[in-house]
């Protein structure tokens, strides 16, 4: 994935079954963001792979004051990339099982 300065990773092991999964977002390089993030903490949240959209979660983080509006695309992209990877891995596991 492209280096956005924001890293999103799984906060729990993916059992490949549940739709809602815990994820963790960390700012790795604040210089890559246009605005100043609130702090350098890790933000843990749950993401529903079937219902949630990365753009909405990014906007919620901005509403909550973690990031500035100008970084919404960067945050959304970081989440989207990770979600795509999780989905891809699940598909591959499913194919292997069949």
């Amino acid at each position: 994935a492209e280096d956005t300065g924001v890293r999103v990773e799984l906060a729990e092991e993916d059992d490949g079954q549940k739709s809602s999964i815990a994820m963790r977002l960390c700012v790795e390089d604040a210089k890559k963001l246009k605005g100043k993030p609130k702090d350098n903490g890790a933000i843990e949240f749950s993401f529903d792979l079937h219902k949630d959209h990365p753009e909405d979660v990014a906007q919620e983080m901005i509403d909550s004051g973690f990031f500035q509006e100008c970084d919404s695309k960067t945050v959304a992209k970081s989440i989207r990339d990770r979600v795509a990877l999780i989905k891809w891995r699940r598909e591959r596991t499913q194919q292997a099982n069949e």
Binding site: C26, D39, I43, E44, F45, V57, E60, D63, S64
Partner: peptide, 27 residues
């Protein structure tokens, strides 16, 4: 420090925990 919890009006919960300084300086 301890973790802080923020609940967005949409219902999603964000749990913020401080990252140790040493980890931030890793390449």
């Amino acid at each position: 420090g301890s973790a802080m919890q923020v609940v967005h009006s949409a219902g999603r919960r964000f749990i913020v925990s401080p990252v140790p300084e040493s980890r931030l300086q890793e390449p």
